[in-house]
């Protein structure tokens, strides 16, 4: 109580000593606060930008041999070919990548295997330098199954290239213009 009285008396004696100057510490604090707020509100900000997009994959022509490394091992993406079209199935790595149930197809022409519903080694074209599998001996039912697979792939995955037999790489412009 003593203290309060003492302070009141002190304050009362001080009133006439207050100045009307602009340059008091209190004014300085308020002024800087005002300037800072004005700055933060008014400072120009550049228009927002989004992070860069992933660069587009270049459509390319594969032969069975150049397609082989794209099997998901050593950090490579997983590609597989269906009837001359190469799909990037990296997003389905669990199925088509190393250790997956369809791992045999990675980096290979998977047309025959998908058509016959078989994941066996003998479904793949053995001779990498030979002509592509024409699938001529398959029946209507198998071709129907293959078309089903193709439609699924078109929905889910990107066509990143086309597959031709070795020696036919120059013959572009026929199937190369397919839309992705």
């Amino acid at each position: 109580m003593d203290y309060v009285q003492q302070r009141v008396a002190q304050a009362a004696s001080n009133t006439d000593a207050s100045s009307s100057s602009l340059f008091t510490p209190l004014n300085a604090i308020l002024l800087s606060l005002l300037l800072y707020t004005a700055y933060t509100f008014l400072k120009p900000t550049p228009p927002p930008s989004l992070p860069r997009e992933e660069p587009a994959t270049v459509f390319r022509t594969f032969t069975p041999r150049t397609l082989l490394p794209y099997n998901g091992e050593n950090g490579m993406p997983v590609y597989l070919a269906v009837r001359g079209r190469v799909f990037d199935v990296t997003r389905g790595r669990n199925f088509y990548g190393p250790g997956g149930p369809y791992a045999n197809f990675a980096g290979r022409d998977a047309s025959r295997g998908l058509a016959c519903g078989s994941f066996d080694e003998d479904m793949l074209t053995k001779d990498l330098d030979g002509p592509l599998d024409t699938l001529a001996d398959l029946g209507a039912e198998e071709m129907e199954a293959l078309r089903g697979w193709e439609e699924r792939f078109e929905e889910k995955y990107l066509v990143v290239g086309r597959l031709v037999a070795v020696g036919e790489e120059g013959a572009r412009e026929d199937g190369g213009q397919e839309k992705a």
């Binding site: 207050s18 100045s19 009307s20 100057s21 209190l26 004014n27 606060l33 005002l34 707020t37």
Partner: peptide, 29 residues
């Protein structure tokens, strides 16, 4: 005690300019 004294001292400096500045700040916000 020191804190009390300094706060009182600081606001004891309140004058017409302070009022103007405070109004400007509140008005701006």
């Amino acid at each position: 005690l020191n804190l009390d004294a300094s706060v009182t001292g600081l606001f004891g400096q309140w004058n017409i300019w302070t009022s103007l500045l405070a109004t400007a700040l509140v008005g701006f916000l």
